[in-house]
């Protein structure tokens, strides 16, 4: 199964190659950049007198967190949260003899298949079908009597779901500065109560007494 990280790392690599064309982005109001929002990637990003919340993998050309600026990430009680991603114009070849495996797994909703011009949509259930396999992979296949020519190349649009881990995961191509009076704050943004691989348990006396969560050291 291909991961979101694969795509993002490739994208970050492209930004690295284009780093000489980086543009500055000054953020002075509280802002959130989600895992799907790659519009700021590749920039020289400056955080000043505000809180910038970033989720998912992102890449910037440089990073400056000025005094009173805070960089953080969201809190997901279970340690991750599912996000929907969209794929457009994925090239596939359909034939009567073999199904075509989609590039991404955990496909949600209907897969839309068009011809190479993108203007003529084929009919799901009449021209083609889709199967989600037990391992999460997805395939599309031609149906008997399909209007798709055997062996034709087609374009495929679909949505797929990926769990994004809580955490700040940044690739900075050049320099990063966390100035005095600023910071990156992930305090209390890990697993929620009684969650995580090392979650604390409770005694069952008259008064419940909760054990601390385990990190590298046991709680």
């Amino acid at each position: 199964m291909k991961q979101i990280k694969t795509a993002c790392v490739l994208m970050v690599a492209v930004f690295c190659l284009l780093s000489s064309n980086a543009w500055s982005l000054l953020i002075t109001n509280d802002t959130a950049i989600g895992p799907l929002n790659l519009s700021c990637d590749g920039s020289d990003i400056i955080v000043s007198n505000c809180v910038l919340t970033i989720d998912g993998l992102h890449g910037f050309n440089s990073l400056l967190v000025e005094s009173n600026g805070v960089l953080t990430h969201s809190f997901f009680p279970s340690g991750s949260s599912n996000f929907m991603f969209r794929v457009t114009n994925e090239l596939q070849v359909l034939s009567l003899s073999n199904p075509a495996a989609l590039d991404e797994s955990n496909v949600v909703g209907t897969v839309i298949v068009t011809d190479l011009s993108g203007t003529n949509a084929y009919v799901f259930g009449a021209d083609y079908g889709e199967t989600n396999l037990p391992d999460g992979a997805a395939e599309i296949y031609m149906l008997p009597g399909s209007s798709i020519s055997n062996g034709a190349s087609v374009l495929v649009d679909y949505q797929w779901e990926e769990a994004v881990h809580a955490g700040l995961d940044l690739i900075i191509s050049n320099n990063a500065t966390i100035a005095m009076g600023s910071g990156i704050n992930a305090g209390g943004l890990g697993y929620g109560p009684r969650a995580g691989p090392g979650f604390g348990t409770s005694s069952y006396g008259i008064y419940f007494e909760g054990a601390g969560g385990g990190g590298f050291g046991n709680g």
């Binding site: 955490g167 992930a186 943004l189 697993y191 109560p193």
Partner: peptide, 11 residues
């Protein structure tokens, strides 16, 4: 409930 764990910073 108990308290949340710490988050993650990867740079």
């Amino acid at each position: 409930a108990g308290a949340n764990g710490g988050g993650a910073i990867v740079l």
